[in-house]
């Protein structure tokens, strides 16, 4: 029983950064914007979170700094793609490269320094239940409020939304900033909670997995939850297998969580009607008002 509880805690801890980043990206994509820079925003969140906590000694300042860093990165992305109408795919890729490089530069002096860990409440890291809460909150927001409906509408047909008088670009800025804040927080979680230290490129591709989760979860919050926790479970299982010396090449075991999660989500996203219904139809298309 105790072992199960410990396992569950470890799984939830491993899944939380994916959950946070994927939820943010889902809201961004629901508004019709494809931001491939999740990895870059996360890694900037990680370095800013570590730095904020390290400099002040207060891990909560670090959490705040990681959110602000993610938002700053997404604002840059929004300005380039929404205001200057740059290509979203190319800009998102550039954002990731920028984030990886800039974070390595800024974090040079942090390498090897002891981090400040966010205190856990009753044995649970507060960001873990927060991420769970956000699944419900984002679901309620998108499917139960007017603003959520507007975001989905803008992502479905920006021309129709514009014809009804909605500020398409404004709505998209808000969604992009929310995505940035969540990605930044996900990065901060890594450097303040998960492994309280700064290592260059410490996000290790989690941003990309978050991106894949969003698509294979058909842009639905509870499927993202399932996908993130599945990823966490397989990660832990592959650790256990490696520790037991099962003879399976470790490279294969390390790739298992990625393979398993994607496979499972491909199978669930086989419901074409549901996928069609939830795919933002104007995803990745720049919006230019008529004349």
């Amino acid at each position: 029983m105790d072992i199960l509880l410990v396992l569950l805690t470890i799984i939830m801890t491993a899944a939380t950064p994916l959950l946070l980043a994927a939820l943010g990206e889902m809201v961004t994509e629901r508004s019709g914007v494809l931001n491939l820079g999740v990895e870059g925003m996360m890694v900037m969140g990680a370095v800013a979170g570590f730095g904020g906590a390290y400099a002040t000694g207060n891990p909560w300042i670090g959490v705040l700094a990681s959110i602000v860093a993610g938002m700053f990165m997404s604002l840059l992305f929004g300005f380039l793609t929404l205001t200057l109408l740059a290509n979203q795919v190319a800009t998102g890729l550039a954002l990731t490269l920028l984030g990886l490089g800039l974070s390595a530069l800024l974090g040079e002096s942090f390498v090897g320094q002891p981090g400040v860990k966010l205190p856990s409440l009753g044995g649970i890291d507060p960001l873990v239940p927060f991420a769970l809460f956000m699944v419900f909150a984002v679901g309620k927001f998108l499917f139960g409020t007017k603003m959520g409906l507007v975001i989905r509408a803008v992502g479905n047909s920006h021309t129709s939304a514009h014809a009804l008088g909605y500020n398409v670009i404004g709505v998209r800025y808000v969604a992009v900033l929310f995505g940035g804040a969540m990605s930044g927080l996900a990065g901060g979680y890594l450097s303040i909670v998960y492994t309280p230290q700064w290592v260059e490129n410490m996000t290790a591709g989690r941003g990309w997995i978050a991106l894949a989760l969003v698509v294979f979860a058909s842009w639905l919050p509870f499927r993202i939850l399932a996908g993130a926790y599945l990823f966490g479970t397989i990660s832990i299982l592959s650790f256990v297998l490696q520790a037991q010396g099962s003879g399976i090449p470790s490279q294969f075991l390390s790739s298992l969580p990625y393979l398993g999660t994607i496979l499972a989500l491909v199978v669930i996203s086989g419901n074409k009607a549901l996928t069609r219904r939830n795919t933002p139809a104007s995803l990745g298309q720049p919006f230019v008002p008529d004349r």
């Binding site: 989905r152 509408a153 479905n156 014809a163 009804l164 939830n278």
Partner: peptide, 14 residues
Amino acid sequence: SLFDSLTVAENIAL
């Protein structure tokens, strides 16, 4: 000016 992946009621609510 309608939204294909929203319901009738959601379209009107907008």
